[in-house]
Each structure stands twice: as structure tokens, then as C-alpha cells.
Design a protein around this nucleic acid. Structure first.
Lengths: 148, 148
DNA sequence: TTATTTATTTATAATCGTTATAATTAGTTT
DNA sequence: AAACTAATTATAACGATTATAAATAAATAA
């Protein structure tokens, strides 16, 4: 399953003439297998034992390469570090405002919003971003325990 | 119209024990009357002729105060500067990927998404963020002219 | 194969938005 | 007026990201 994702991703890169370096392979592999939404630094830390000389710049550079190839989505959070998400199928994120955890959920198209926005503003619409914020079950439990 | 918004905003601040300093008054006034989505630096630049000694920190501090009072919403964009939006009614933003312009549009509640997300993930949902991306009419026109 | 070009990585410095700190000023309360 | 508190200012620091230049690796041409 995840091997297939990796294989497809590598194929996509090859097609666009991007070299598959060991670092790139490892970063992609980590993104796919960790099943999380890591920051560039998370990735750097996770791989530094295998690539002791790797630079953070390499991580950033390659995440940009992957983003431009459409393999990876960047989730930006103001002053805080961006998180990177391997693109599989369309999904949205719900984010815990207490611990920062990000959980995926699916929701059938919000095409209607795009259409309405295009109609009202005259924009040519390309995409949208939707995030839901709240408190995850674990944090909610903790808050109850401490009678917050 | 905008005077009323300003008056209400000042009342809200007074109620929560926040002092109305000349700088705060000016920042709020600018946010309301500019009808735009300025960065902290935009505000700083717009007011520096009236407050030659004002510090950027003051702008940031007060935008945080306003945000915490619910008067202002902060729109974050990764590494780029946040934009600040005086809260009037519920609306969403459509952003031009070419020139960065932000235009408001209204859309009747996405409560259903919140409910579904809560149900699927077990989160206690507080809010959501939705943005649409595309190309504004002006940029689209330019692109056509240059046969892009 | 070797030489040459090109892409990639590395190391490091720089940038930029934002926040922290400490000193000063202004406003409030006693 | 004195004492206390809040807000502002000036400046330094921070952290995420990017730019730069040198070094290395890979691909292509000779």
C-alpha cells in the first residue's frame, strides 16, 4: 500500500526529470510511512541518524520540489513551522487547539463554495483550504480530570 | 456606519478594562476604514506620520489585544506576514494567487462540516477556517493580454 | 573511460515576521 | 501628590525559512 504510493511518487519525479537521490528517497519514504504531518525539522531529526551530514536546507529544498510536483501539500501556520502532508486523496484536517494534533477527515466536495465564490467575486477559482479547529478527545479528557 | 463599528469596538474594549490609548484608537480606526486586510507593517507605515515614535511592537501588541477581545481576526500565511481583519459579520476570503489580493465573500454556514468532523474524529469543535484560492479578474485580464 | 556539464547537497550566513525584555512614560487609584 | 499599574518604546533575540557559495555526485559527451 504505502510501497505503491512511494513507487508512484518516484515515478512522478522521474517523469519530471528530478533525480532520485538517497535523501529524496528517504524524505518521501518518511512522509508516506509516518502517516503524520511532520514539520521540516521533524523530518530532519528523523533522518539525521541515517544521513548525519544532511542539511536542513536539503529537507526544505526537497519538500519544495515535492510540493511543486504535486506530491506534497504544505500546511502553513503563521509564525509556526509548516507541516507537510503527502497527498493521497482529498481530505481535510481537524486540528487540536490544545496539543496541536492534526487528524484527517473526509468530506464530500465543497465544490458549491468554490462556484459561489467564483460567481460573486469574478475570480477564476483553483482550490480551497478548509480546516476545523477544536479539542481532541485526549485533551478534553485531561481537561475534565483537572476540573478545568 | 464605520463610526458605529469603531464606537462598538471601543465599548467592547472599555468593558474588558482595556485602556483606549491614541495608538489603539488609530489602529482600530485604520482597520475599520481601510476596508482591507493589512499586515502589521502596513498599519505601522500608515500611522507613522501621525505617531513618529510608535514602535512596531505596539502594533503587534495591540493587534493581539484586539484579537483576544474578538474584535480582530488574524489570517496567517506561513512564512509571510499575517493579515488582520476587523470582524464584522461572518465571511470567508478568496485570495488571488497572482497578486495576493484578498476579497470577502459570504457563504451560509458550513455547520454541517463541523458536525461531521466532530462526529468522525471525536473532537469538540470550536471553529473552522475556509479560504478559496484563484486568480482575480484583473490578473486574469493581464495574463490574457500577454498571451500567457 | 575520461572530461565536461549539470543537478544536488552541504555549510553557513542572511532575512523577515514576530516576540521578549527592560526602561520609560502615561494613566489610575489611594 | 504618592504609589501602583498599564502601555509604549527601543532594542535585542528567536525561529522558520531562504540565499549563497563551495563541494560533491550524477549524467552526458567526447
Amino acid at each position: 500500500m504505502s510501497e505503491l504510493h512511494l513507487k508512484n511518487a518516484l515515478d512522478t519525479l522521474k517523469k519530471t526529470g528530478v533525480r532520485i537521490t538517497p535523501q529524496r528517497h528517504a524524505i518521501l519514504e518518511y512522509l508516506i510511512e509516518s502517516m503524520s504531518h511532520p514539520t521540516a525539522d521533524d523530518i530532519y531529526k528523523a533522518l539525521e541518524h541515517r544521513f548525519p551530514n544532511m542539511s536542513v536546507a536539503t529537507v526544505y529544498n526537497n519538500l519544495r520540489v515535492f510540493r511543486e510536483a504535486g506530491l506534497v501539500r504544505e500546511l502553513t501556520y503563521g509564525d509556526n513551522a509548516s507541516r507537510f502532508d503527502f497527498v493521497t486523496s482529498k481530505h481535510y484536517h481537524i486540528i487540536c487547539e490544545s496539543c496541536g494534533k492534526i487528524v484527517d477527515f473526509h468530506y464530500p466536495g465543497l465544490d458549491e463554495v468554490e462556484h459561489l465564490a467564483a460567481h460573486v467575486t469574478g475570480f477564476k477559482v483553483n482550490s480551497h483550504r478548509l480546516e476545523v479547529y477544536g479539542i481532541c478527545p485526549e485533551c478534553a479528557k485531561k481537561e475534565n480530570q483537572t476540573e478545568e
